[in-house]
Structures are given as structure tokens and as C-alpha cells.
């Protein structure tokens, strides 16, 4: 392993940006190379490994039977969880998910939920008795920045290839599947970092160490906005936010083709 000296040199990231250069040579609205591999875990009902530059994450879906809420007897649900594994970064600690992991999980979840990518009525097994709960568990393997977008892509990719466990006489037949999970939308999460007065798309780790604020937006196929998240103590001007949304609309089309 060669240490990324840039992580220590926030000053260089900032200085380069003042001259319009990003530390890895990209343009301000350019995203890194994305590779998606499906079927990386056979025990999962659907899984995907996503590399966004050197950021490396794995997501797996398990469809688990559960009881519906009394006020929504014909609806199942989804639950998204992300873990910052200690293997991914020398600063990630062993232990239960902390604030960052929880925020990450909820932002990814929000985009999927609000865009109605999954219709919860499709997850009903027996009304009032049994419904499916779709658990999406995401694990960070290597952190090189922008875990948000990598997890967003991984979650959607794994859902898109999820098979539904077979049900016979109201009982689950282990190891057998009947059809795929119905995914009705393909929301794409795009995250930006504010460094000094510049807003860059898909921040690499060194840029994240230099950023004062973070902005994420989820865009749907019909160019609608389904989630916002501003993070960290800094601030954005409205022009900066709108600029980012424009870039997100453009980049999300490119990303959606890969899902």
C-alpha cells in the first residue's frame, strides 16, 4: 500500500483548486470510473459490488418475512443499513454504527423510498398476516471518498437483481426463487463537496478532508428531485446548490445506464 500523501495535504487540494485543478486531474463536474459486479454473494437474494474510483463497497439484499403494521396491512417495507468497516480506512473503528454510518444509511434509504422505487404493496404476501421486508445491507470495503454515491449505486444495483424467495402454501421454500423483485424507479444519488469557493462533484477522499460542506441530491428518471441532504458545518449559496443540481441531472443519466 502506498499512502495517499494528499490526505495529509489539505493545503495542496485547496491551492490546486484555486488554479482550477483537482488533485486527480478531473474537471469539477466529472465523476470517477464506475465498475459494477453483480452476484457477489450467493446467499444474498441480490448483491452487487461497486467501485467508484478506488472506493469499493458491497451491498446485499435479503427478503425476510415479517408482520405488517396494523394500519398498513397490505404493505411490506425496506430497511437500508450501511457499515463503515474498519478495513476500509485506518480511522474507521470497530463498534456499532456511529453518526456517519447512520446518516449514510438514511440518505440512501430516502432516495429509494421517496422515489417509490419499490411499491410496498408489491411486498404483500398475505394481507394482515405476512409481508416482505427487504433488508439492504451495505459494507464499505475501501474508502477513497464519496461513500454516499457508491452506496446509492450499490443499493440500487443489488435491488435490481434481487430474486423473490418462493412461497408455497404460505411457507417459504428455502433456496428456491420465484421471479424478481419489482423495481419501479431508478433514483441516482449525486454528492458534491464545497472546498473554498468551489463545488466539486464526486469528491475523492483528499477532497473530503478539505471540504467545508457536503451536498447530496437524488434525481429520478424523469428529472425530478426526491431527496436532499446537506452535511457538515459549512454553508452553500443558492447558486451553488442549483449548479450542483444541474450537474446531478446530467451525471445521473450517465450513471443510470450502468445500473
Amino acid at each position: 500500500m502506498i499512502s495517499a500523501l494528499w490526505d495529509l495535504r489539505v493545503d495542496k487540494v485547496v491551492a490546486d483548486l484555486k488554479e482550477g485543478k483537482r488533485i486527480d486531474g478531473r474537471k469539477v463536474d466529472e465523476i470517477r470510473k464506475i465498475t459494477i459486479t453483480h452476484g457477489v454473494s450467493e446467499n444474498a437474494d441480490g448483491s452487487a459490488r461497486v467501485k467508484l474510483g478506488l472506493t469499493d463497497v458491497i451491498a446485499g439484499v435479503k427478503m425476510v418475512p415479517g408482520t405488517p403494521y396494523p394500519d398498513m396491512p397490505d404493505e411490506g417495507s425496506i430497511s437500508v443499513g450501511a457499515e463503515l468497516l474498519p478495513m476500509a480506512d485506518p480511522e474507521f473503528e470497530v463498534g456499532p454504527p456511529r453518526d456517519e454510518a447512520i446518516e449514510l444509511s438514511r440518505v440512501v434509504d430516502r432516495g429509494i423510498r421517496e422515489s417509490k422505487a419499490i411499491d410496498f404493496k408489491d411486498l404483500c404476501i398475505t394481507e394482515g398476516e405476512k409481508v416482505w421486508v427487504g433488508f439492504v445491507d451495505i459494507y464499505i470495503i475501501n474508502n477513497d471518498g464519496n461513500l454516499f454515491d457508491a452506496c446509492g449505486i450499490a443499493a440500487m444495483s443489488s435491488l435490481l437483481e434481487t430474486k423473490m424467495p418462493k412461497i408455497e402454501d404460505g411457507k417459504i421454500v428455502k433456496g428456491e426463487y420465484a421471479g424478481k423483485l419489482k423495481v419501479r424507479a431508478k433514483p441516482v444519488l449525486s454528492t458534491f463537496a464545497k472546498i473554498g469557493n468551489v463545488v466539486v462533484a464526486d469528491p475523492i477522499l483528499s477532497e473530503e478532508k478539505a471540504m467545508s460542506a457536503r451536498f447530496s441530491v437524488t434525481i429520478t428518471e424523469d428529472d425530478n428531485i426526491t431527496a436532499f441532504q446537506k452535511g457538515l458545518p459549512g454553508s452553500f449559496k443558492i447558486d451553488e446548490l442549483n449548479g450542483a443540481i444541474d450537474v446531478a441531472m446530467k451525471n445521473s443519466k450517465q450513471i443510470r445506464k450502468l445500473l
Binding site: M1, I2, A4, V40, L54, P86, M87, A88, D89, N143
Partner: peptide, 28 residues
């Protein structure tokens, strides 16, 4: 060997259906 750039040492292993990632940080 060497699949996790951020770690000091790493490996990915498949053994039958088992699939495993291992990473080492240290000595630190």
C-alpha cells in the same frame, strides 16, 4: 493479495462458496 488500497495489507479469498475480505493495519 493487495485488494484494499487503503489498508497496509489485504487479501480476498474464495473457498468453495465462502467469500472473504481480510485487511491488516499496523503495526500502529
Amino acid at each position: 493479495a493487495g485488494v484494499i488500497p487503503r489498508a497496509d495489507g489485504s487479501a480476498y479469498l474464495e473457498w468453495g462458496q465462502n467469500k472473504v475480505f481480510a485487511a491488516v493495519y499496523g503495526p500502529r
